[in-house]
Design a protein around this nucleic acid. Structure first.
Lengths: 346, 346
DNA sequence: TTGTAAGCGTTATCAC
DNA sequence: GTGATAACGCTTACAA
């Protein structure tokens, strides 16, 4: 086993000084061509690679980005990460991942763990619990220490930092408009409670779309799901609510759900109840993922372009780190949504 | 903006030496109680946190694990990561992610990037291209430098390192046995080409299960999918093959597919052709994921316990890093598979 | 009880 | 053209 070789060892072996080796390897013309080639040959032979940690300490930058997300077993977030990773790697950065599991404490711990020199900046999406508690001290502290943050998707408006978001309201409007255009007149909404920002915005989009088309929203057509750590329970509860809704409101001919899973759940129940999709029931979901694509029938969705969100977040962060952009100026990038028409709409 | 405070600054401020501060913070009783509390109070006030990079350099360990996987937008891999992350965090380690995108070059680059001091050890699943090229020099070099590797799922048998695998053959046998037990007599197999190890093993399991039940395998019932970087094309091609197969072999009453997507694809076509599932067509997939769970009807699968694989991998790596286990002794952990019976089997 | 100095691996500055 | 030295932030053996 040959341990990693260091400058010191090369210097000793070749009987020159460490600084000579260092310069020779960077091909400095301070050093004679003779020495240079000798050193370089030796380094190559022993497969010398500079130690990143030493470089980080010296340069006060690690060339790595910290990413904190609520969960990773989630199509949207893993897509965002793949976007971040792609852009980061292109620009010579590594990516270190922390999971908050939607917990405030884990988010704080993860941030503290990474903020002590391990990374140059954060890209993150805020945990639900944090949003609920509205305790943002860890973000403020990080920013105060001069470490830049880019928030994506679940952002905190009042914090001064770069942000990458989707136009949730507009996305919803597109979805609902599609349903209306294809002839739906009684469109149900399946959304989350309002404290999750995106749920709130998507609900607004639904309402506005109806109003713009002179349709009076009826609260009896809206289900607001209480989220549960145990998804099974959440979905079971939702199933009952949907079933009751469809039994009571026979006129429903369209459903807009704020995420794939709610939409799939609704579709399953509708199919069981004998609805023909999309003939007498159309469905659109926010958030495009594998589930929608491979469902039978495949679901029409609003795509959030997650990969693009990741890329954009990384670009913004790295630009700031490399001072290509004014340190004090914060931007909010809005990523477009697109309607993907598949088999649940006419 | 208050930049991060260092030992040096505290020392200067309090007019003591750096080492006194260092010791005081670690509550060494070498230092007078008076000084200790003074230093600790000051450190607390200024929210002092030791710089991880400096510690890493000093200790020659970073307390971070490098994970290299083929893709992250993939239920199995993201589950494994969540397992790794959980165990790593419990033991005070961070996780840094590299994606190979199934490419040999990207795998090599990622490993080289991280192997230069950034991490203490690797957990990885080998890229398909690497498997195909059978060029493993980057693994050998890493191990030679004294950096431990744990391979999971897609492993290279000939490399001496710890491994965590699933018993693919046995898992397949369970799946096929289930089909046979529930009355299927003509079971089709949808698998990958043999160079992907898991595809090969799963095929073997299928064959053995048939033989053990005195059923003669028929090659006409087997589809070997040519994988394609463009999944769309891969699936389109597969759709045609399945359709042709079902048209030709009317007696098929069961399908075993080596992954979810192949199974879903088969199911879609079978449904279109008027088969009733599971009444006259049963389906089981290897690999449990969201797709299976939420498909309509929901798919019976063989679960690989991905989270457990991740946890186990992390445990093995960290045990080795912390020398709780013999450095020279390599183990292969086999994770059990379980049959999850849902609505596509009787 | 406190401080000095060396060392982790690297690079930049300056002296020879 | 080469090398000694200091510095990045921290710990620790040893000296005072």
């Amino acid at each position: 086993m040959k341990r990693k070789v260091t400058l010191k060892q090369i210097a000793k072996e070749l009987d020159v000084s460490v600084s000579t080796v260092s310069k020779a390897l960077r091909n400095s013309k301070e050093i004679s061509l003779d020495t240079r080639s000798k050193v370089q040959a030796f380094a190559k032979l022993y497969n010398y690679r500079p130690n990143n940690i030493a470089l980080s300490l010296k340069n006060k930058r690690t060339k790595t980005i910290g990413v904190i997300i609520p969960e990773i077993v989630h199509h949207f977030f893993s897509k965002v990460i793949s976007g971040i990773e792609k852009e980061a790697n292109n620009r010579g950065y590594n990516v270190i991942i922390g999971l908050s599991n939607e917990s405030f404490d884990k988010e704080v711990i993860n941030i503290e763990m990474l903020a002590n020199g391990s990374i140059d900046g954060f890209i993150l999406s805020v945990a639900k619990e944090t949003l609920l508690l509205q305790d943002y001290h860890h973000f403020y502290e990080t920013i105060n220490q001069g470490m830049p943050i880019v928030m994506f998707d679940r952002v905190v408006n009042e914090i001064a930092c770069d942000k990458v978001v989707v136009d949730d309201k507009l996305g919803s409007k597109k979805a609902v408009a599609k349903l209306i255009d294809s002839g739906c007149e009684n469109i149900a909404l399946i959304t989350t409670k309002d404290y999750v920002n995106v749920g709130k915005l998507r609900t607004q989009g639904y309402l506005e779309a109806l109003e713009e088309h002179k349709i009076t929203p009826k609260s009896s057509l809206i289900i607001k799901v209480e989220e549960n750590k145990d998804k099974e329970i959440e979905i079971e509860t939702l199933e009952k609510e949907i079933s009751a809704l469809l039994d009571k409101e026979k006129s429903i001919d369209g459903i807009f759900a704020v995420n794939e899973l709610y939409a799939i759940t609704a579709m399953k129940i509708a199919i069981n109840k004998g609805y023909k999709i999309p003939e007498n029931m159309s469905i659109v979901a926010f958030t495009d993922g594998v589930l929608s694509k491979h469902a039978i029938p495949s679901l029409s969705t609003i795509s959030q372009h997650a990969v693009e969100m990741g890329e954009k977040s990384a670009t913004m962060l790295i630009d700031k780190l490399e001072e290509l952009v004014d340190e004090e100026k914060y931007q909010t990038e809005v990523i477009n949504t697109t309607l993907i028409e598949r088999d649940t709409t006419r």
